[in-house]
Nucleic acid binder design. Structure first.
Lengths: 196, 196
DNA sequence: AAAATACACTAACAAACGTTTGCTTAAAAG
DNA sequence: CTTTTAAGCAAACGTTTGTTAGTGTATTTT
């Protein structure tokens, strides 16, 4: 068949990871086969194993790559000197932009993580729980400072994060508004729903 | 092993459907096997086929059962004599309550429909698209009547529906607020985000 | 009580799966 | 140019998958 073409500084493994994210997004992790992935990459299935250890490795590299980016951003925002509402807006914008620009891997991380195997599965779940608690803490801080309505912070986090994962529908839709417009609309509704 | 126990007026097929919804929700449609389903039902895998035609039949019965309920409710709400905001609130409450009470089948319909096969798949997608358009029309009506902020109605629908599917996290969480509290919080944030 | 139906079982099927082995060839390093 | 390494291939492996066929046994109907 010929070799996998490598662009710039992307290794062959990077190419496989990128194609895997697209495939897992479209078919779901369990339904996507290594033979399908191989075809998309332009190679026989067996050849993939010169670059990766297993199908599961692909999934957990995708999931943790996304999780790490979110954790870094959260850390940065927590140390910002700004109002709670401003922090939430900043975090939401980051989520929205990630979802718009890195749709494949973000979607997979969001929807297919349950097929991770231990110890990655437990690790991921713990990180996820922690992330949400820290997000909720920012909201609770905003309630204490009377910037935000008296609501259950956990529920608010749940709404925000899942609303963002709805950008999936925006991606699939035909006549769509621009990414920037989408971002503004989402911020208006979501932050507007919190404001006192 | 002995026969499948039938409660009240539930047929053996109903029992299988109910257990299938739980299994598909937990493992995902593709990852759930007929042998696992059989074990949960308390029977050998082959015996399931005395009651059902195929694994796919289970999925599409679950998906369309849910879709039908939503369509009926939407129809009823459209013919109500009330403000747009009130209609939206009513529809959201219905979604939230369904998600809380019939979690298994609603979740499966929401997340696993892509494994439907044609003609069911196309049919389902069309119904889904239509449903969202009609929901968006209510929002647009509210904007015209100045009850609702000037926002993109399609984006608002996307946020609402996906926020609701986030009740999944509420189900999985340990220390959770009551279903009624959850409902009030969600309405506050979501409807609050629309109000002018 | 006899006949018919409903339902469960064991055994097996063909297909698809992730992955390994052993070999060949193209590219990189010396 | 020669050697070494990287990366491709075909073939096969042991499982698991959804499903069917054939048979026996309860339950229901007559």
């Amino acid at each position: 068949m010929g070799r996998i073409k490598t662009n710039n500084n992307a290794s062959r493994k990077d190419i496989i990871l990128q194609k895997a994210a697209i495939l897992f997004k479209e078919k779901g992790f369990k339904a996507a086969s290594m033979r399908e992935l191989a075809e998309v990459v332009g190679v026989e299935a067996a050849s993939l194993y010169n670059h990766i250890k297993s199908k599961n490795e692909l999934l957990h590299e995708i999931c943790f790559s996304v999780a790490n980016k979110y954790n870094e951003k959260l850390e940065q925002i927590e140390s910002m000197d700004a109002s709670a509402l401003k922090k939430i807006e900043e975090l939401l914008r980051f989520h929205i932009i990630s979802m718009v620009q890195n749709f494949d891997e973000v979607f997979v991380s969001d929807r297919e993580w349950k097929y991770l195997t231990d110890p990655y599965l437990s690790n991921f779940q713990t990180q996820r729980r922690t992330y949400r608690k820290r997000f909720a803490a920012i909201i609770e801080d905003g309630i204490k400072k009377k910037e935000i309505k008296k609501i259950d912070a956990t529920t608010a986090v749940l709404i925000m994060l899942h609303a963002i994962s709805g950008i999936e529908s925006w991606h699939r839709s035909k006549q769509k508004i621009s990414g920037a417009e989408l971002e503004e609309n989402m911020i208006t509704i979501l932050v507007g729903g919190l404001k006192k």
